[in-house]
């Protein structure tokens, strides 16, 4: 799992690459929180084009990130969801609880 990103005009964009499961989720959440706390963006965009696999650990992580942004009175947007992560999000009904765009 690799995270790269940048913050421009209050929009923090983070690109995920690899597989998001329980093994890496704690570290990913720590990295995510750290960047959100550092930039205090009004919007956080998670670009999942490079995320080839995700399971329920990923769902919990995305929902936590959404909650964190909401608590900062900002918003979270998820984009570039690939086939397998999309099926998992829909099966868990999490697509209804997250802002997702193409």
């Amino acid at each position: 799992m690799k995270i790269t990103g940048s913050c421009q005009e209050g929009v923090l964009t983070l690109r995920f690459q690899g597989e998001l499961d329980h093994h890496v989720s704690q570290e990913v959440m720590a990295a995510l929180s750290e960047r959100i706390d550092a930039f205090l963006p009004r919007k956080c965009v998670l670009d999942l084009r490079g995320l080839s696999f995700m399971d329920s650990s990923g769902i919990a992580l995305l929902l936590r990130a959404e909650k964190k942004m909401r608590q900062l009175e900002g918003s979270l947007l998820v984009t570039g969801v690939q086939e397998q992560p999309g099926r998992v999000l829909r099966a868990a009904g999490a697509d209804q609880r997250l802002g997702i765009t193409e």
Binding site: S25, M29, V88
Partner: peptide, 22 residues
């Protein structure tokens, strides 16, 4: 049951539902 978890906020309680669905 969906959403049942003993695992706290790192878990979503959807594991068995996903297994059943897939």
């Amino acid at each position: 049951e969906p959403l049942f978890t003993t695992g706290g906020e790192e878990r979503s309680g959807m594991g068995f539902s996903i297994m059943a669905c897939f």
